[in-house]
Design a protein around this nucleic acid. Structure first.
Length: 493
DNA sequence: GTTAGGG
DNA sequence: CCCTAAC
């Protein structure tokens, strides 16, 4: 079993234009040297570019061409060097492009393993390679001083309605039209898909402040930075070499926490069969530490037994994580634990398999990755098996009393989805197979529908008996048990 | 405003 | 899908 999912956001088409006002403002501060246009790259392209560069370098340079120690057995993807720092520095040479400074410990000696966790004894000039940015460049993200980012300010930024589309797609970018865009899920999704299919340019939410910008992309992923026309770092200040981004749900408390951690790049990994992960990468991170961070997060989620590799798939602009079970270990089942049918109905057990990891406190609710995968499917057929699967999983996890969350989780165009879908599904599951029409739904799914429906109905009834005033608040008990994150933790700040 | 159920 | 009750 191979689990692979790219860091979808930011790679492969996310481009980051700046608002005209923000660009002008940054220019005045000398932060922007080149005009921001639609060729800019997203924050996540940074790592992708670095990864691609590292990989290219590894391929072209015999001294750097090596096999990672912790490369996944059985995978053909290239693994990045473990000790190569992801540090990005501006290039001081006048005419050259921005460069990625990569400490190449391997070049110090052929016997040193790239994935060794040991730091080089001596790190001198020769241990640093300057990799020119040939094709797509990279972005450099600057941050204001920590003291200048306050919760209040962040809150204000996140509450702003500065939605815009890329200039090429929207001629009225200089107008205030983007302010009128509703940042709702449906809008964002549709626009994202449309633009991605046409121009590879998604919806962005952006507001600049100080020397940084907050981009709210898609489902509330926020990144900060300036970008020039080729995605290269555009800040001349070397002190801006710190990389930081933030990934979180909109209106999430995690936003504050993530933003308050200066000097880290926080990534949200949309994974397949793996819940969303929040990866914090300090500006001194190495590829190895990145891999380890991902590995730790995934291990915490899946219970271990996985090997993480970073793959490139022969693309400069993509960085993927490949997860495989260790040969000596059998990976835990990925699906069975999700189903409430596995649970005794009188014992409330965690419906989420995702234990509170070190990053979970700063994370929104764990996300069934298969649903996230489904969300990416363009124009899913109404009520297809895949959709039913997503719906069932969402209900199993959240319960029938939280339809709003369920549909947001399960459906792409969630705005227009109603409770009727689940209702019809329950009805379909109850009637005989001969009476069913339309696309056949696997009996296994229908069984899960009935089980989940029965389970959550029972839970709901229990709650109503226990606490009549707290009807429909089944999540309260769940939260008491620490099994499920209460949405209220993340909203309303 | 959301959920759930009936029609 | 619409309507309505309950929350």
């Amino acid at each position: 079993m191979v689990l692979q999912k790219r860091l979808d956001y930011g790679f492969n088409g996310y481009q980051v234009p700046a608002t005209p006002r923000a660009t002008r403002s940054a220019r005045r501060r000398g932060a922007i040297r080149k005009r921001v246009d639609d060729n800019s790259m997203g924050a996540f392209d940074l790592l992708a570019t670095i990864a691609g560069k590292l990989l290219l370098e590894g391929e072209s340079s015999p001294a750097s061409s090596h096999t990672s120690k912790d490369q996944c057995a059985g995978t053909k993807e290239n693994c990045l060097d473990g000790d190569k720092p992801l540090k990005v520095e501006p290039c001081d040479q006048g005419s050259c492009d921005r460069r990625i400074l990569v400490s190449d410990h391997i070049s110090q000696g052929p016997n040193q393993s790239s994935c060794s966790k040991e730091s080089p004894v001596h790190q001198n000039e020769s241990s640093v390679m300057q990799l020119p940015i040939a094709r797509r460049g990279l972005l450099l993200i600057c941050w204001p001083a920590p003291s200048r980012i306050g919760d209040r300010r962040i809150r204000k930024i996140l509450a702003s309605k500065y939605w815009k589309v890329a200039p090429k797609l929207k001629d009225d970018i200089h107008s205030n039209s983007y302010r009128d865009q509703k940042p709702n899920y449906h809008n964002r999704k549709n626009c994202y898909k449309r633009q991605r299919s046409q121009m590879n340019i998604p919806f962005k939410k952006r507001k600049l402040f100080d020397r940084s910008a907050v981009l709210n992309i898609d489902e509330g992923i926020s990144r900060e930075g300036f970008f020039d026309s080729r995605g290269k770092g555009i800040t001349g200040d070397a002190s801006c070499s710190k990389i930081q981004g933030a990934a979180m749900k909109s209106s999430s408390l995690a936003v504050q926490q993530l933003h308050s951690n200066q000097g880290v790049l926080t990534l949200r990994i949309k994974s397949f069969r793996v819940p969303e992960l929040f990866i914090e990468i300090p500006d001194t991170a190495t590829v190895g530490s990145l891999k380890k961070t991902v590995m730790d997060a995934v291990t915490a989620v899946l219970g271990g037994g996985l090997c993480t590799g970073i793959s490139q798939d022969n693309q400069l602009d993509s960085l993927g994580f490949t997860l495989e079970p260790n040969s000596s270990q059998t990976p835990p089942p990925l699906c069975s634990g999700d189903s409430p049918c596995m649970l005794p109905c009188d014992v409330l057990q965690p419906l989420t398999r995702y234990p509170a990891g070190p990053t979970s406190e700063a994370s929104p609710e764990p996300h069934p990755a298969s649903l996230g995968n489904f969300i990416e499917t363009p124009n899913p057929r109404p009520f297809s098996v895949a959709e039913v699967e997503a719906l069932v999983q969402a209900v199993e996890k959240l319960g029938t009393g939280r339809w709003r969350d369920v549909k947001l989780r399960a459906f792409d165009n969630a705005k227009h989805r109603t409770y009727d879908k689940w209702k019809t599904l329950v009805h379909t599951a109850r009637i005989s197979p001969q009476q069913r029409r339309g696309e056949p739904v696997p009996q296994e799914l229908l069984d899960r529908v009935l089980t989940a429906h029965a389970y959550w109905s029972q839970q709901q009834a229990k709650q109503q008996l226990k606490q009549p005033r707290l009807a429909f608040s089944s999540e309260i008990e769940l939260e008491k048990g620490g099994h499920m994150l209460n949405k209220k933790r993340f909203i309303g700040f």
